[in-house]
Design a protein around this nucleic acid. Structure first.
Length: 659
RNA sequence: CGUGGGGUAGAGCAGUGGUAGCUCGUCAGGCCCAUAACCUGAAGGUCGCGGGUUCGAAUCCCGCCCCCACAACCA
C-alpha cells in the first residue's frame, strides 16, 4: 500500500506563527493530511521547529536571554497554537535535539565520504568592530553584476543573482557599518555543481508540479549551480563532525531540511518501533510531499533533492506544493512593522474553524491573495453562518421540534430526491479531486455549493407544509436533508474539523469516512445528540476593533484633516418603508442640500429631528441603501447600542467646519 | 537592469480556442422550518492597451502600459 509522508517547513523558533504561515503552508498541509486520513490512507505529517542559526543568537542578545531560552519558548508557543488551531502533527520535533544533531552529522559525513563536500580555505569577512565573522546577509555592498548599491552577501536583490560575499564591491558590515576585513577561514562546500545535470533532468521530469514551483525552479537552475558553503563560524548550531573543524557549525539551510528525517525518526521511536521511519524514507512507494511557502522553493526543489541524490539512499520529493503569499488588507506582512495577524492572538478571541475556512477558500494557490477583516466577516456570516450553519440548524431543529428528535426513516424516493443524491455523489467526487490536487480553495467552493443545494431542496420540499399533510413524505425529505448534512460534514472535515466533529455528535455518528455510501451514512431512527448553533455571526464592531488594533491607534494629522466634518441642519426626515430604523434625512450642509440615510429610527421619530443641528461627515463615499443614495454620514454617540445625536453648544450656521 | 506573479462586472476571484462565469454587494419578488437566516429573478463586464495567427481568442504569438513580491531575521 502506498504511503504518504507529508512535511511542513520547519518554522524558525524566533517568533510566533502568523496567518501567512498558515495560509501558505500549514493549513493546506493539514487539510491534505486530514483528507488522506478520511480516505484511510497511510499518511503521516512530520514537522518541528528550526532552532539553529544566527538570527536566534541575535534575538537572544537583544532580549538578554540565552538562545536556549528563546528556542524553548517559541517551540512551546508554536506547538501550542498549532494544536489549538487544529493543525495536527504526527510528530512535532525540534532541530536542537541530540537525535537531529546525530542525523545531520551522519548525513554530512556520508556526503563528505563520497566527495560531495570539500573544504576550501576562504577569505571571509570579519568585522573588527563587532569581533565576529559576518554571515552572508550581514554584508552589504555593490553588486558585481548589475552595479546596484544595496546587494547583500548572499544575493543581489536587484538582479536576483546568487552571490558570495567576497564578490561584493565596497563591502560594509550591516550591523555597524564599518568596513570588514578579510580573514582566512576554512569552510566546507557542498558540490551542487556535480549534481546539476542529474538535478536538471529530474526537475524537467516533474511535469505534475504546480506551475509556479516548476517555472521558478527551472529558471533558477538555468543560472548554473556552484559549490555552496554549508558551514559557518558561529557557536549556536550543530558542530561540523570533523576533527579539523573545531568551532564550526553546519549552516542552517543544510541541517534544517534534514530535520524532516530526524523528526520522522523521533516519531518512530515514540511509537516504540525505532526502525519504522525507514518504511517511509527508504521506500519507493512513499510519496514525499513538502509543503512550503514560496520563499523556500529553491531550497526544497534544488538544494535538498541534491543532498538526497548525493546521499543516495533516500527517496526524492514527489511533490512540492508551494503557495504564494498572503497579504493583509492588501499590504505585505511585516513583523517589524507589526503588520501581521498572529495566530495565538486571533485564537484568544475567535474560534479556529472560521479562519481555517476563510484562509482555505482564499488560499494563495496560484497568486498572492489578500486577507481582509471585512472579507473574513463576510465569508463567515454569509457562507458559514447563512448557508452552511443554517442548513444544519434548520434541519436539526425541525427534527427536534416536529419529529421527536429522531432521525426519520425514508420511504420511496422521488425524482427530486434522486437528483439530490446524485448531486451529493457528484460534489463528493469534485471535492475529493480538489483535495487530492492541493486545492482546498476549490474544495471549499464545491462543498459550499452542496450546502446551497441542500437549502434549495429544503425550500422546494416545504417540510413545514408536509408536516401537516404528508408525514411519510416528510420523513423522506428530512431523512435526505440529514444525509446531505452528514455527507457535507465528511467533505468539509479537512477544512473545518471542529465543526465536523460537532455534526458527527449531533447525528450520533461514531465514525465516518470518505468512502461511506452517501445514502447510508446516518442511522435511521437514531436519537439526535444535543445540538447547538455551529457558527456565530461576526459583528461589524468586532472587526473594527481588530483593524484598529492592527493599524495602531495613532493617525496622522493629515489623515484627520481628510475628514470633511461640518455642521448641518435637518430640513426633512421620513422613515424608509419596510425598515425598522432607517430614516432618510434631508440636510442643509451650507453648500448644498442632500440626502443622508441614518439608522436612528429606533430612538428618534422623524418629526423631532427636523431643525436639529448635527455633525455630518460630508466626504464619505456615497452609498445606496434601500434604494436611497446616502451622501455622507451623521455622527452619533452610541450607548447601549442606541444612537445619541451630536449637536452644537451654540447656534452656528450650517456648513460650519468642525475641526 | 533582473527574476517570479498579476491586470476578467462595484469588491474578491474562476475560467488556457467555440455563445463571458462564481461568491458577495445592489435592486425586485417569494417563503416562514431556521442564527433577520433560506429560495427565485434582474441589472451590471468592448476580459489592461495595440497589433498578429485563426472560420473563431479572455484563452496562442509579438510589442507596450500598469500593479505586487523578491530589503529591514516575513511563509
Amino acid at each position: 500500500m502506498d504511503k504518504i509522508l507529508v512535511t511542513t517547513a520547519l518554522p524558525y523558533a524566533n517568533g510566533p506563527i502568523h496567518l501567512g504561515h498558515l495560509a501558505g503552508c500549514y493549513l493546506p498541509a493539514d487539510v491534505y493530511v486530514r483528507y488522506q486520513r478520511l480516505r484511510k490512507r497511510n499518511c503521516i505529517h512530520i514537522g518541528g521547529t528550526d532552532e539553529n542559526g544566527v538570527p536566534i543568537t541575535i534575538k537572544a542578545e537583544q532580549e538578554g536571554k540565552t538562545p536556549r531560552e528563546i528556542v524553548d519558548y517559541y517551540h512551546k508557543t508554536i506547538k501550542e497554537s498549532f494544536a489549538k488551531f487544529g493543525i495536527k502533527f504526527d510528530n512535532f520535533s525540534r532541530t536542537s535535539i541530540p537525535l537531529h544533531y546525530k542525523t545531520s552529522q551522519d548525513f554530512f559525513l556520508n556526503l563528505h565520504g563520497k566527495g560531495y563536500i570539500v573544504p576550501k580555505i576562504q577569505k571571509q569577512f570579519f568585522c573588527p568592530r563587532c569581533q565576529r565573522f559576518l554571515p552572508d546577509r550581514y554584508v552589504e555592498g555593490t553588486c558585481p553584476y548589475c552595479g546596484s548599491e544595496g546587494a547583500r552577501g548572499d544575493q543581489c536583490d536587484e538582479c536576483g543573482k546568487w552571490l558570495e560575499p567576497l564578490d561584493l564591491k565596497n563591502p560594509r558590515c550591516k550591523l555597524c557599518g564599518s568596513t570588514p576585513v578579510y580573514r582566512k577561514t576554512k569552510q566546507w562546500f557542498f558540490r551542487l555543481d556535480l549534481l546539476e545535470p542529474r538535478l536538471k533532468e529530474w526537475l524537467v521530469s516533474k511535469r505534475d508540479w504546480k506551475e509556479n514551483v516548476r517555472s521558478f525552479t527551472l529558471g533558477w537552475i538555468k543560472q548554473g549551480l556552484k559549490p555552496r558553503a554549508i558551514t559557518r563560524d558561529i557557536s549556536w548550531g550543530i558542530p561540523v563532525p570533523l576533527p579539523e573543524a573545531n568551532g564550526k557549525v553546519l549552516y542552517v539551510w543544510f541541517d534544517n531540511v534534514i530535520g524532516y528525517i530526524s523528526s520522522t525518526k523521533e516519531w518512530a521511536q515514540k511509537l516504540g518501533e525505532p526502525e519504522k521511519w525507514r518504511d517511509y524514507w527508504f521506500s519507493q512507494d512513499t510519496r514525499l510531499v513538502h509543503f512550503i511557502g514560496k520563499d523556500n522553493i529553491v531550497f526544497h526543489a534544488i538544494n535538498w533533492p541534491a543532498m538526497l541524490m548525493a546521499h543516495g539512499e533516500f527517496i526524492l520529493p514527489s511533490q512540492i506544493p508551494a503557495n504564494e503569499f498572503l497579504t493583509i488588507e492588501a499590504k505585505q506582512m511585516s513583523t517589524s512593522r507589526n503588520w501581521a495577524i498572529w495566530l495565538d492572538d486571533y485564537l484568544d478571541r475567535f474560534p479556529p474553524d472560521p479562519l481555517r475556512y476563510v484562509l482555505a477558500s482564499n488560499a494563495p494557490e496560484r497568486s498572492d491573495s489578500n486577507f481582509t477583516w471585512d472579507g473574513y466577516r463576510m465569508k463567515t456570516n454569509n457562507e458559514l453562518v447563512g448557508t452552511f450553519g443554517n442548513l444544519v440548524n434548520r434541519t436539526l431543529q425541525f427534527i427536534n421540534s416536529y419529529m421527536g428528535g429522531k432521525i426519520p426513516e425514508k420511504s420511496s424516493l422521488q425524482a427530486a430526491d434522486m437528483e439530490v443524491l446524485n448531486k451529493i455523489n457528484e460534489k463528493k467526487k469534485e471535492v475529493g479531486d480538489a483535495y487530492e490536487n492541493f486545492s482546498p480553495k476549490r474544495a471549499t467552493e464545491k462543498f459550499m455549493e452542496l450546502a446551497r443545494e441542500g437549502n434549495r431542496y429544503f425550500d422546494y420540499s416545504k417540510p413545514w407544509e408536509l408536516r401537516k399533510n404528508d408525514r411519510e413524505r416528510l420523513s423522506t425529505v428530512i431523512w435526505l436533508a440529514t444525509s446531505l448534512i452528514a455527507n457535507l460534514g465528511v467533505m468539509a472535515e479537512p477544512v473545518i474539523p471542529f465543526t465536523a466533529e460537532k455534526i458527527k455528535n449531533f447525528l450520533g455518528i461514531k465514525h465516518w469516512e470518505w468512502d461511506d455510501v452517501v445514502g447510508e451514512i446516518i442511522n435511521q431512527g437514531a436519537q439526535l445528540g444535543k445540538t447547538e448553533i455551529l457558527f456565530k455571526p461576526v459583528s461589524r464592531g468586532k472587526i473594527v476593533l481588530e483593524r484598529r488594533k492592527m493599524m495602531g491607534n495613532i493617525i496622522r494629522f493629515s489623515e484627520f484633516e481628510a475628514l470633511d466634518l461640518r455642521i448641518a441642519e435637518i430640513k426633512g426626515a421620513e422613515r424608509i418603508e419596510g425598515t425598522d430604523k432607517l430614516i432618510k434625512l434631508l440636510v442643509d450642509t451650507g453648500g448644498d442640500t442632500r440626502d443622508l440615510v441614518a439608522g436612528i429610527g429606533n430612538v428618534y421619530e422623524p418629526e423631532e429631528l427636523i431643525g436639529k443641528k448635527i455633525v455630518v461627515l460630508l466626504n464619505l463615499e456615497p452609498k445606496k441603501i434601500r434604494g436611497v443614495e446616502s451622501r455622507g454620514m451623521l455622527l452619533a454617540a452610541v450607548h447601549d447600542g442606541k444612537p445619541v445625536l451630536l449637536t452644537v453648544d451654540a447656534d452656528v450656521p450650517p456648513g460650519c467646519v468642525v475641526s
